[in-house]
Amino acid sequence: MTDQKLPPFIQPGERVVLFDGVCKLCNGWVRFLIRHDPQQRIRLASVQSVQGQALLTWFGLPTVQFDTMAYIEAGELLVRSDAVLRILAQLPGLWRFLALLRVIPRPVRDWCYDRIALNRYRLFGRYDRCLLPNADHARRFLQD
């Protein structure tokens, strides 16, 4: 694969999670990933960031209201339960076994995912603005 076919801001071999930076649940997920990805295999970008907006545009996704987390690997975009399960498969230890939930039919998995995603602000809350990464975590986020 040549660099020209890669989405913007993504280097060959990078895996990127796009998340809602004002969602408290999504920020908790990001903290979980940082804690459980010691090899730093997964990079991060909020959908509100310049990088996130460029990636959403690249894949033809909405840039104003985004109701799913997305995962990009090898230039391929996964969303909803497929994204979560692929991310879990990248983590070490017992977390990767949760990826076995792929045996549940996608419509059922996505229905469950959507119930949480569409109600995430009401259930978990939201921040007034996108949180900035801690200095020691900044290298995990896509940069210009």
Rank of each mutant, 00 (worst) to 15 (best):
Ile10Thr: 14
Gly60Ala: 05
Leu78Gly: 04
Ala70His: 09
Gln39Thr: 14
Ile104Val: 12
Arg122Ala: 05
Leu123Lys: 14
Asp114Pro: 07
Thr57Arg: 14
Arg139Gly: 15
Leu55Lys: 06
Arg96Phe: 12
Arg126Trp: 05
Ala45Asp: 06
Ile87Phe: 03
Leu18Cys: 12
Thr57His: 13
Ile42Asp: 02
Leu61Gly: 02
His137Met: 11
Ala70Pro: 06
Cys130Phe: 03
Arg139Ile: 15
Val30Met: 08
Leu98Met: 15
Lys5Glu: 13
Val79Gly: 09
Val64Asn: 12
Leu78Asp: 05
Arg41Glu: 13
Lys24Asn: 12
Ile116Val: 11
Thr57Phe: 09
Pro38Asp: 08
Pro133Tyr: 02
Arg109Tyr: 02
Cys23Ser: 12
Gln4Arg: 11
Pro62Gln: 05
Cys26Val: 08
Ile10Asp: 06
Ile116Met: 04
Leu123Ala: 09
Asp128Arg: 14
Cys112Leu: 11
Leu55Thr: 00
Phe141Asn: 04
Arg139Pro: 14
Ile72Asp: 04
Ala89Ile: 09
Leu25Phe: 10
Ala45Leu: 04
Ser49Ala: 07
Asp144Ile: 11
Met69His: 06
Leu98Cys: 14
Thr57Ile: 10
Leu44Cys: 04
Ile72Pro: 03
Val16Leu: 02
Cys23Lys: 07
Gln40Asp: 14
Arg31Asp: 06
Thr57Pro: 05
Val79Pro: 06
Asn27Leu: 11
Ile42Cys: 00
Leu98Asp: 08
His36Asp: 07
Tyr113Cys: 02
Phe97Ser: 12
Thr63Asn: 06
Ile87Asn: 01
Leu25Met: 09
Ala45Gln: 10
Pro92Cys: 13
Lys24Trp: 05
Gln51Asp: 00
Val79Ile: 13
Val64Leu: 13
Ile34Gln: 00
Asp37Ser: 00
Ile116Pro: 01
Pro8Asp: 00
Leu78Asn: 07
Gln11His: 07
Gln90Thr: 13
Arg109Ser: 04
Ala74Gly: 15
Tyr113Met: 01
Phe59Leu: 00
Leu85Phe: 10
Leu18Ala: 10
Leu88Tyr: 10
Leu101Ser: 03
